[in-house]
Amino acid sequence: MRRERGIRESLGSIVLGFELIVLFLGTLVAWGLHSAPAAIVIGGGAFLIVLAIIAMLTLRYRYGTWIGFAVQVLAIVAGIWVHMMFIVGALFLAIWIYAMYSADKVERLKASRAQNDPQLNETENPQ
Rank of each mutant, 00 (worst) to 15 (best):
I80N: 09
Y61I: 08
G64R: 01
I53G: 05
T58P: 14
H83Y: 11
G68A: 04
A36W: 12
A36R: 12
G44A: 04
F86C: 11
R60P: 14
F47E: 00
H83I: 13
V41S: 07
G68E: 04
Q72R: 07
Y63L: 15
G68M: 01
L51P: 00
P37Y: 00
F86L: 13
L57T: 11
I80W: 12
Y61V: 09
I40E: 15
A70K: 02
F86N: 11
L51E: 03
L57D: 14
R60W: 14
L48C: 04
I54N: 06
M84I: 14
R60E: 15
P37G: 03
W81N: 09
V50A: 08
G44L: 03
A52Q: 03
G79S: 08
V50C: 07
F69W: 12
A52R: 01
I80F: 13
G64V: 02
G68N: 04
H83N: 13
Q72F: 01
A52W: 01
F69G: 10
A75V: 05
V41Y: 03
A70W: 05
I42S: 00
A75T: 13
V41W: 05
A52P: 02
Q72M: 10
F47M: 00
I67Q: 01
A46I: 07
A78K: 08
V77D: 05
T65V: 14
L59K: 03
Y61P: 12
L59A: 12
I40C: 08
P37A: 03
L48P: 04
A46W: 04
G68S: 07
R60A: 15
I42T: 03
A55Y: 07
A52C: 10
L51V: 06
A78W: 13
H83W: 11
I76T: 08
G79F: 13
I53C: 09
Y61G: 12
V73R: 09
V77S: 10
A75E: 07
F69A: 11
G43V: 04
I42L: 09
I40A: 11
H83M: 13
V50G: 04
L51R: 00
A46Q: 03
R60Q: 15
M85C: 05
G64D: 07
A39G: 10
M84L: 14
A52L: 05
F47D: 00
I42C: 00
I40F: 10
P37R: 01
Y63E: 14
G68W: 02
W81I: 09
Q72S: 05
G44V: 02
I54E: 06
V71W: 01
I76E: 09
G44H: 05
A70G: 13
F47Q: 00
G44F: 07
I40K: 07
G43Y: 06
M85N: 11
M85A: 09
A75Y: 03
A70N: 09
L51I: 02
A75G: 10
R60M: 14
L57K: 12
V50S: 03
A75N: 07
I80V: 11
F86Y: 15
W66Q: 14
